[in-house]
Design a binder for these strands. Structure first.
Lengths: 277, 277
DNA sequence: CCTTATGGTTCATTATTATCACCGTTAGTT
DNA sequence: AACTAACGGTGATAATAATGAACCATAAGG
């Protein structure tokens, strides 16, 4: 297509650049699939095998990816451990979250998880499963899309308009039959969430999973991520809802304190309204 | 410079590709400098400001990097936390190391650290400082070069010849006045290390720091990384040396067991020889 | 108020990358 | 064992995307 002179520069970063394609490869690795072969990666990313191979070589050189000794599979390399260490010692947020997740899971008896804004999506950085027999078992390390998850929606609801616009303009995959992909409907939901302070997602990201999420904030009052509790959909009752939300609000406050986050006025107002019920 | 038709393909990955340049930016973030500005990154990497900016944008989109809200500085993003989580839950090595580091530090009274092969260098994935007043305080999260550190040398010593060749053919920076950069001398040292099973580095990577390192291995018998103890150079005595090496060998064996590593015959022989002294 | 630093942007040039067809191996099937 | 199909990996060329000098706008500092 060439480069049509004055094309919008933001659009380019969506996919066109080579680094974007290379980094996108990393997103295919998850807890459920920690090792992937060359052809498989090429197929999923839609990029040519030769190209993928060249990019993997470079990433191997930098330790982001490594080749499992004998097998011909690629996996995430030791470099990511180092990077995480550097970030965590400089800005220890992950550890702060972990503590609250344990409490949430214990108090609600359900699976709790936390995620942080990572570029255009949410990165799950911690999970604490309940010890009940029937529970939601999340694929941890997953990337959460903004439009289909409770965490994503609640983050968007308190984000600046330009972030919201960018998110809603992206192609939205219908993860289940209930996923909302209509922009107008989503905007209405965001408005609603801004008033309640929490978001729920009734099987919009995964069948049989009901999610409830509450945002946590940065120093500047913008959302940093979210904490959430996921239950089997059939088990959710009004009572449990109320209990979970209360627990989430409580832990969110602790986390905000721990990471030096400043909840904006509208969120604090929403929490206050909830407490009065 | 163009691309001279049939140029060696391996050489390309050294720097020429764009992804390599982008990923190289990540290496500038460390514990001592967790946030860096655009111009600074451009200066250090030797890449044009505009290019660096474009690459940073892409990496922000993928959550590998993020812009500190108000300040105009970049830092490692939440995406690296997710990646590390994925790798660690699938292949839990970091946690295995951490335990041994605590023991090492306690038993020797000095600072212990562990590193894993990450591409062409070693990535420090764990540090445990001693609680003595005078101790070596490492810049954790640092990238260790193969030629100037005890850990790097001991890893090279038990690596396959092609790995060694590649490492020795790279430009070797003299980190201190004592750093060995001569290829022939280094090869002799590697031969020596293969016989003793450990490597020492007397102020070859940092002034006043004396390092002792021992390798840990992968399932296939190739080195996975190294554990090391660093002391103030003046404090190192023959007695301490012997004690530290014994402790290192002992912990290395535990770690190998923990990560399913198989030490090759020559390493086991070296350990046996040491035990007889 | 002028200087000098910063982060950020643009656009024509050109060097880089994607593509396709191709190898050599491995693994599964008949 | 022969055969097939998939795999990881490679190389040359057409077509693309990266590059970097010059350009703003802003902020800090003298």
């Amino acid at each position: 297509m060439g480069r049509v002179a004055g094309i919008k520069p933001e659009i380019r970063s969506i996919m066109s650049t080579t680094v974007a394609k290379a980094l996108a490869l990393l997103d295919f690795f998850s807890d459920s699939e920690p090792e992937i072969g060359l052809s498989e990666l090429a197929r999923r990313s839609g990029v040519d095998k030769a190209t993928v191979h060249r990019m993997l070589l470079v990433m191997c050189d930098h330790g982001l990816v490594e080749k499992r000794g004998a097998a011909r599979l690629y996996r995430l390399g030791a470099g990511v451990l180092r990077l995480a260490r550097v970030r965590e010692t400089a800005f220890p947020v992950s550890s702060v979250f972990q503590h609250s997740l344990a409490i949430l899971s214990a108090n609600t008896g359900e699976t709790a998880h936390a995620s942080l804004i990572a570029g255009r999506a949410l990165a799950t950085i911690g999970v604490c499963e309940s010890n009940r027999g029937s529970r939601v078992s999340l694929v941890a390390g997953e990337i959460l899309r903004m439009h289909s998850t409770a965490s994503g929606l609640v983050v968007l609801a308190f984000s600046k308009p330009d972030i919201v616009d960018r998110a809603l303009n992206e192609p939205m995959v219908a993860k289940t039959s209930r996923t909302i992909t209509n922009t107008a409907v989503l905007r209405a939901r965001l408005q609603e969430i801004r008033l309640t302070g929490f978001a729920d997602a009734d099987q919009t990201n995964e069948d049989d999973v009901y999610g409830l999420a509450v945002p946590v904030f940065d120093v500047d009052g913008t959302p940093a991520g979210a904490i959430a509790v996921a239950t089997p959909a059939h088990r959710m009752t009004n009572d449990l809802r109320h209990q979970v939300i209360a627990a989430l609000f409580q832990e969110a406050e602790k986390i905000n304190f721990g990471i030096g986050g400043n909840p904006p006025a509208d969120f604090r107002a929403a929490v206050a309204r909830f407490s009065q019920t």
